[in-house]
């Protein structure tokens, strides 16, 4: 399993065909706007970035809101981390 971080909406286009079925996507910074839509991946979004942008009630049901300690934990579970920006 690979963790892919995405920090802006346009960066999804760089990695959408690189994400394998069991990979996980973490949205941070402006990347959290991607959490508004339903994506064909396992998607997490960083809480402080979601809250700062007023998106808490607007996220797609599949987008799981997490904190930085969860982010760290997902990295430890992954084989490697790939960052898209």
């Amino acid at each position: 399993m690979i963790v892919h971080t995405i920090n802006k909406v346009s960066a999804l286009g760089l990695c959408d065909n690189l994400v394998a079925e069991d990979d996980k996507i973490i949205l941070l910074e402006d990347g959290v706007y991607l959490g508004l839509q339903s994506l064909p991946f396992s998607v997490f979004a960083i809480r402080c970035d979601v809250d700062a942008r007023g998106l808490r009630g607007l996220l797609a049901a599949q987008t799981e809101v997490i904190d930085y300690d969860d982010f760290v934990h997902l990295c430890t579970e992954a084989d490697k981390v790939c960052s898209w920006f």
């Binding site: 920090n7 941070l28 910074e29 970035d49 904190d67 300690d69 982010f71 760290v72 430890t76 920006f85």
Partner: peptide
């Protein structure tokens, strides 16, 4: 870390991540 403070959020995100790494015992 590739981002400058204030110009980009990356610098702040990295700091939050770094703190969480240590707080998680890593």
């Amino acid at each position: 870390v590739h981002g400058a403070p204030y110009s980009s959020e990356a610098c702040l995100s990295a700091l939050k991540f770094a703190r969480a790494v240590l707080e998680s015992g890593h």
